[in-house]
Design a binder for these strands. Structure first.
Lengths: 410, 410
DNA sequence: CGGGGTTAAATCACGTCATTAATTAAGTCC
DNA sequence: GGACTTAATTAATGACGTGATTTAACCCCG
């Protein structure tokens, strides 16, 4: 009861205050390394004394280390601080359509080890995936020589809707998964803290943390591949909605009664601008085994002056622009990032046309305040983004499971 | 700089902690009056001792009063607490197309006085509006016998986009207002704290606080009148976007290349389901001076079996359902509330058809978790919702301007 | 090379806060 | 009217952030 009091976390005691301040300092330091105590004090609004105290704790605990100093001209030099990148590690898992990839990162998000497991396209059974992931975890730990007690957590990006409840459930249309309790299944094989999310959302996170989204408070990361999805960021946080299925931009209706979509509805955006749909709208045969090379061929054909290809792309820009305009009108984001392999391919060529279509379909005021850009990270970033899930938990105050570190000397 | 540290308000000292706890208690009490200290302790997670302390302060300051007790069977009876509804007052202003309405409420949102000023439809000049508002403020204060020092603040709902910046600017398409610094203009005539927002948004607030939206964390309040808009609530808070123009649902494209909208674009939702658009799509003459009676007549005609009217309404339900489905897919709200005079009129008759169309255009999972309901408050609620703006500020810890009340006896 | 000047960081003293435990208040029931 | 219950207040305790003060670290200049 009492919906108005939603303590995302217990808050009210003087101790929670410390935890929060600690967290604020960690976030600030994480994204602005190296920096000095003074800068932290300014950035967070905490007094220099408090910064000193908390930082001393963090250094004692090994999360933070001093790293040189800034030369002064008269006066004690400021000491630079940075996160101790070896204090802990995180693992990101990308469960894709054709492979499972497991990557181990240090706190600076430097890759320390990687394991790839190709998937037979006909074999997306749950047990196979779980096996591959668990094998990957062991492999990267062994490879990097990292003990599992030093791992802060594992983030897993999977295709399909991920329902975050008491029990995390995965509904994977493409995989034929229905309410798969992936977390529970993985739990049988590992003790590491697990975070599971939709792969498109983890990729969106990667763009927000390290790519084109850095610094934006309100943004939408659009992912166009064979299908179409989006990550919505409001006030710097991913909007999940009430059952974590928010962001299904691809099934937004842009043409009532229009083309049939694989979701069963008619006129979905995905049925016009998804890679599969674009190729289908073109209709003619194209060289290339897979969608990726076929789409590239379509772009080439248009460049070569092939009329029909040009027309299809022109229309794609129109539809896509209208879809982006919906986001602009509804969310009023400061930035829209176009990603996904098809999004990048199309965007590279069509961005001006897309922007123009978006302008025509959105209100002038909101449009003028929104920038539309291409993603910077490419589709490889799913695992990276997944790995930011445990990082976030860490920055918010979780420590390594084993040692419950308290102040050592009183 | 340092976007990650967004102290919506200074937080970090032990004193801020108290302010926060105080605020949490006020919110809890406000929406669950009367209630006991014990209940508050449970609801907020604060210890009974802290609740006692803070409540004692609040009683001393006159914000809260004891009001009877609950009978016990053995044991000291629990004392009931409620807000002191006369501790302060708020004023809500509804600047509509045809009138300016000013209402004064006590803390229990009981109306204490009202002033109405009809507007000549040809006269929407800024000075006229400002004059009417200021006259209304004086009138309701005099009428209710309330001193302006007892007023916590004034909320103003206006048509058009309200840009919340250092200086609040109003862009009113319908009024022909461009970047009107309404706050500054009003400031010349009153010292009361001012809050200005879009009228559709204040109405949405009213539904969320007192109507069909109570208790929802993620919701969308859709307002259909002559035009179409929406208020998006995420995590219990209105989403404004980066320049406070979020929620322009009416100009979402549901038909690329479709009907021309008054915004200049083609295929906007508003061009299909706004009252003006519905009547226009019907085409034939209808009895009634204004849109409201014309739309009612259209509904009557359909009831009477007039085929074309039935067809227009059927299509309206289809378009509207598709529009709602977009919201469901993008936001995954737990509740959608259909309001506005036209929304209520249409919804009363078409809700099943609208729901069905929404189902067909949204993903099954998200749809099944969303309820679509009619608003409960009617279009009169703009002023009520505007008045919740200063209430919110008050519950968050602002006190009356004059007396900076501190603990009296140490 | 050593003191004066300057700035950064650590320490100290203080006031505030929420919590637990103990105490007081206000009832019921036999 | 005394034993029992439960609510609310008070007291004791520990944790915290802050401003003031002190210590540290480095420059420059003579």
């Amino acid at each position: 009861m009492r919906e108005h009091v939603t303590p995302e976390r217990r808050r009210g005691t003087v101790r929670d205050l410390r935890r929060d301040n600690r967290s604020v300092l960690l976030w600030s330091l994480y994204f602005d390394q190296p920096c000095t105590r003074q800068e932290l004090s300014q950035a967070t609004g905490l007094s220099p004394a408090s910064v000193s105290n908390v930082i001393r704790e963090l250094i004692e605990e090994g999360l933070v280390a001093e790293a040189g100093a800034i030369d002064s001209d008269g006066g004690r030099p400021r000491v630079l601080l940075r996160m101790n990148r070896d204090h802990g590690y995180v693992i990101g898992v990308d469960v894709g359509e054709t492979r499972v990839r497991v990557e181990l990162f240090d706190l600076a998000m430097e890759e320390r080890a990687r394991a790839d497991y190709p998937l037979d396209p006909r074999e997306h059974g749950v047990t196979v995936i779980v096996d591959r992931i668990l094998a990957g975890l062991s492999a990267v730990l062994a490879d990097a020589g990292v003990d599992s007690s030093a791992v802060l957590g594992v983030g897993v990006g999977v295709p399909g809707v991920v329902e975050q409840g008491d029990e995390v459930l995965v509904h994977g249309q493409t995989y034929g998964w229905e309410a798969v309790p992936l977390e529970r299944l993985l739990r049988a094989g590992t003790d590491l803290p697990l975070h599971i999310d939709n792969g498109a959302k983890t990729m969106g996170r990667a763009e927000m943390w390290f790519g084109a989204g850095r610094g934006a408070q309100h943004a939408v990361v659009c992912l166009i591949g064979s299908g179409v999805g989006a990550t919505i960021i409001a006030h710097g946080r991913t909007h999940r909605g009430s059952t974590s299925s928010a962001g299904e931009w691809g099934h937004t209706t842009i043409m009532v009664g229009g083309r049939e979509c694989r979701c069963g509805a008619k006129g979905c955006l995905e049925a016009y601008v998804g890679a599969e749909a674009v190729l289908d709208r073109y209709g003619r045969a194209l060289p290339g085994q897979d969608e990726e090379s076929a789409l590239a061929a379509l772009l080439d054909a248009a460049t070569a002056g092939e009329e029909e290809a040009g027309r299809v792309l022109e229309e794609t820009a129109l539809y896509l622009g209208a879809g982006l305009a919906d986001l602009i009108n509804l969310f009023n984001p400061e930035r829209i990032i176009l990603g996904g392999w098809a999004g990048l391919l199309l965007g590279e060529r069509l961005l001006p046309a897309i922007r123009d279509a978006a302008r025509r379909h959105s209100l002038a005021h909101a449009f003028s305040e929104t920038s539309i850009e291409l993603g910077r990270l490419g589709p490889e970033a799913v695992a990276l983004g997944a790995a930011t899930l445990p990082i976030e938990r860490f920055l918010n105050g979780a420590s390594l499971s084993s040692a419950d570190r308290r102040r050592s000397a009183g």
